[in-house]
Design a protein around this nucleic acid. Sequence first.
DNA 1: GACCTGCTGCGGATTG
Length: 720
Amino acid sequence: MQEQAAHAILDGPADIVIAAATAGGKTEAAFLPICSLLVGAATGSVRVLYVSPLKALINDQYSRLDALCEHLEIPVHRWHGDVDTAKKHQVLREPSGVLLITPESLEALFVLRGTQVSGLCGGLQFVVVDELHSFMGTERGRQLQSLLHRLELTVRRRVRRIGLSATLGDMSLAAEFLRPRERERVTLITSSAEGHELRVQVRGYERPARIKPTAKSNSQLDQTPSGTGDTEDSLDDISIAQHLFRVLRGSHSLVFANSRMEVEFFADLLRRECERLKVPNEFWPHHGSLSRDLRQDVEAMLKDRSRPTIAVCTTTLELGIDIGAMSSIAQIGSPPSVASLRQRLGRSGRRGDPATLRVYVREEEVTLDSAPQETLRLQLIETVAMVELLLRQWYEPPVTGQLHLSTLVQQVLSVIAQCGGARPIEAWTALCKTGPFESVSQGMFAGLLRELGVHDLLTQSTDGTLLLGGAGERIVNRYDFYAAFVSPEEYRLLAGGKPLGTLPISQPIVEGMSLIFAGRRWRVVSFDELQKVIEVVPSAAGKPPRFGGQGGTKHDVVRQEMFRVLRGSEVPRYLDATAQQLLREGRAEFRRLSLDTCSVVQRGDCTYLFPWRGDRASNTIMLHLRALEFDAVAEAGVVGIFKAPSAALATTLRRLSDMGPVDAVELARTVRNKGSEKYDWSLSESLLCEDFARRALDPQGAWEAIANIVSARGVESESP
DNA sequence: GACCTGCTGCGGATTG
């Protein structure tokens, strides 16, 4: 790979995507040849712009590149929110060498120093984008594409782009992202050093059915001020913690949980186990709401091999900083996606050692009121499906074809701030016709500008030039303008004046309540609603807080693989005895319900449809039925319809099947809370519908699923 | 019943 990359960089003018597993030497593969081209000609302008999604990664790469470039006399600079302004001024005065920057800082450069960018980057030769895959399909990715395009417009020429990416199923998507409209001209270099040994175990656990607390007993618990709102650790969680303790203690490992709440829960449980046995604690939590200091402490312990460290973490330790090879990876609950499971696995088993993965799956004990999702053991089935896809090296592609109108609003405001004004046709040409918002027509753009005028984000001078309106000025001049994504308001959590981290504002806070945070137990002693500060002191009791968040989405292929697993009879060797038993139970229930030939199940007054499709398709079916006045919900890919007369439902489904795919934009009109991205509030209802339809709906998939359901038994009865 | 990321600002007068 290194040799191929060197040839591509040194011999030709093409843009390049270099794909390899985590820490596969991508940085060196790109920078060794680039630096050899820079020797003796590294001053007068920034020569290489390296863009990274993380400040931590910039700091990491800075020390590596600085060492590499020192004797070549190539200056290396970093530019992000934690860098002194004096250092930034130094770069502006004498631009040179390699500049490491975040998309947000690049945005700030355009807004605040629009006229200086051409001087800073006049002699730019390369743009290197690290962790390219993490940008694809996101608001931030579209922002980055726009910034790179605006950079080329500013320096009035094309600049070579090099993307460093994880391996994707379809690498041409990475090429298209790196150089929109010209993917065939991008050179793809993929590391072949992928297939080393993998050891997998999936362990099943059954959680005893809980007696649901009545509303009364629940509220009494909440009101108890002494903080006895302690969690009763359930038996399955204790068994999982005991197993983790036994197999991981003494090692360097990562335990991925699917939520910050669960990270806190298990970190606390494992620390208490260490205390009970009077051994030093080796288990530490790591997630995005912990203070930077606490996170860096854990990262330093992982890097320092002198004492065992096990981090219980969320996606924070999935990519980015170099922590060295872990001896094994644990995953609690089925992973968010196959792609993410692959990234997590990449943290273990380098240098010829096998990669080791243990997945812990919990299923509820089946009772008389269990829904089919539970009796079918869908958690376990999903995990098996994902492991099978991982072994076949299939990974979810990013969602393409989105409009990203919220990000377009940000970019329109930014272009106007950069240039001090712009004509509508110039803005459309720069951002849409030649830029990354290629699906936005001139007419749609005009509509968007009108709406921005209505909200006073823009005004138009007499000669037609667009200028920032009063509200637009206020937004652009705030420091939070530079990020394309929203961030929720948060409380700061302090213990003895030291920051522990943050809690989302949605969390109800009362003085005297106790909570688990940063793997320890605390009691709230004071709470300042104006300053958004919570003071805590150590405590013996506590439960992990809810952090909130939005549900994830599963891909069509994962659900189709689940169907295949349920229909099959093979029992994978990587399942433990309980997991095997759960798989057999799920398959028996699948056969009992005849789900291989019929996708409708009636239970009580609820009808369940099984489309075996991704969440975009099943949500589309659910919304379509709701628009027709059915009381429908979609959960884990299953559509449940309450109190629907079966004849009426059958007729409706047959009609939908005959109609063909629904008009997704029309369907979006029936959805009330579509807005979720940063500037969605400034869009008209019709633009928001266009955006939502492409972001969240799958009319084709929904229609195919309905047609399948109708053509199978269940809905066949043809009596008029 | 989800996760993560990021981020400003000047210029001239005065003093030693």
